[in-house]
Design a protein around this nucleic acid. Structure first.
Length: 232
DNA sequence: CCAGACGTTGTT
DNA sequence: GTCTGG
DNA sequence: CCAGACGTTGTT
DNA sequence: GTCTGG
C-alpha cells in the first residue's frame, strides 16, 4: 500500500531545512516514499496542557535512531498500528515523537490478476467527501548523522482497511479526527486506552474512494489530473 | 554470552 | 539502543 | 508505493 | 529477483 498523499510538498531549501515556509510550498499530487512531506509536530518546549504546534519537512521513510545515518534503502515507510508501540524501530518515536501528515487524500493500489495470470495494479484515490484535509497518523525521528541528512524522517501508521477501502486493499493509513489531534501530538507516552482508541481504522463513510488513472503509477508523474476519477 | 537484526507491503 | 536467535 | 535499472572487462 | 530512485 502507499500513502502517496497529496500533501502540499516541495523540496526544502538548504538553510532552515526543516522549517516550512508556507508561502513557498507547492502543491503535490504524487508523493512517494523518500520524498519530503509536511508534518505537524509538537513545538519543543511547549508546556503540557498548552501544546503548541509547528510545521516541519520530514522525509517519508523513517530512519531508526540506532542507524548511523541514512540507510541504503528507503527507510521504514509504514508502521503497523498493532505493533508500533513495541517494535524497536518505532518504540521511542511512538512514545515521544508522534506527528500528523496533512493531506487532501491518499492512494491505494488494488492488485488483481487477469485471466492470463498477469498482475495489474490499479490505483484508487481516497479523500474526504467534503474536501477536508485528512490527518494521517505518523511517527518521526530526528536526523541521525552529524551532517548530510538535514531532514528528520517519518513512517505512516497503518491499520486494517475499513469497509470503504477493503475492496481495494487490506490496509489503510490511520486517520485522526480533530478531537484527538492534541492528544496524539503531545510529546509524551500515550496511555493504553488512548492508543487503542486512536489507532484504529477510520469509520466507514469518512472517505470517498474512486479509481484513478494508472498515470499515478509513475512516481515522476504529478499534477491535478492524477486525482481525477477514471473515466471522467 | 555475542552476533545480528531491527519494517511493511506484497509476492512466492 | 534493544531484542532475538544461536 | 511503483517504475526502472541491474555491469565490467576489454573490444569495437 | 532485487535494489535504487522518485
Amino acid at each position: 500500500m502507499s500513502e502517496d498523499a497529496t500533501a502540499r510538498s516541495d523540496s526544502p531549501g538548504s538553510p532552515d531545512a526543516g522549517e516550512v515556509r508556507l508561502a513557498e510550498v507547492e502543491p503535490r499530487w504524487n508523493i512517494s516514499p523518500s520524498q519530503p512531506v509536511i508534518a505537524v509536530i509538537a513545538a519543543s518546549g511547549s508546556p503540557a496542557g498548552a501544546l503548541t504546534r509547528k510545521l516541519v519537512w520530514l522525509r517519508w521513510g523513517l530512519v531508526p535512531p540506532w542507524a548511523k545515518s541514512q540507510p541504503a534503502g528507503r527507510g521504514l515507510v509504514n508502521a503497523r498500528a498493532e505493533t508500533v508501540a513495541s517494535k524497536p524501530s518505532f518504540r521511542s518515536a511512538f512514545a515521544a515523537r508522534r506527528c500528523i501528515l496533512p493531506a487532501d487524500g491518499f492512494y491505494e493500489w488494488q492488485v488483481t490478476e487477469d485471466v492470463a495470470g498477469r498482475r495489474t495494479k490499479n490505483p484508487y484515490y481516497a479523500r474526504a467527501p467534503g474536501g477536508d484535509l485528512l490527518a494521517l497518523a505518523a511517527v518521526w525521528e530526528e536526523p541521525n548523522g552529524p551532517v548530510g541528512a538535514p531532514l528528520g524522517s517519518c513512517a505512516v501508521i497503518t491499520a486494517p482497511a475499513n469497509a470503504a477501502l477493503a475492496q481495494v486493499h487490506d490496509r489503510m493509513p490511520v486517520l485522526l479526527p480533530s478531537a484527538s489531534w492534541a492528544r496524539w501530538l503531545a510529546p509524551e507516552p500515550l496511555d493504553e486506552a488512548s492508543h487503542r482508541e486512536l489507532l484504529r481504522p477510520a469509520p466507514d463513510g469518512l472517505l470517498v474512494v474512486e479509481q484513478v488513472s494508472t498515470e499515478v503509477n509513475n512516481p515522476r508523474a504529478d499534477g491535478p489530473s492524477l486525482i481525477r476519477a477514471a473515466g471522467t
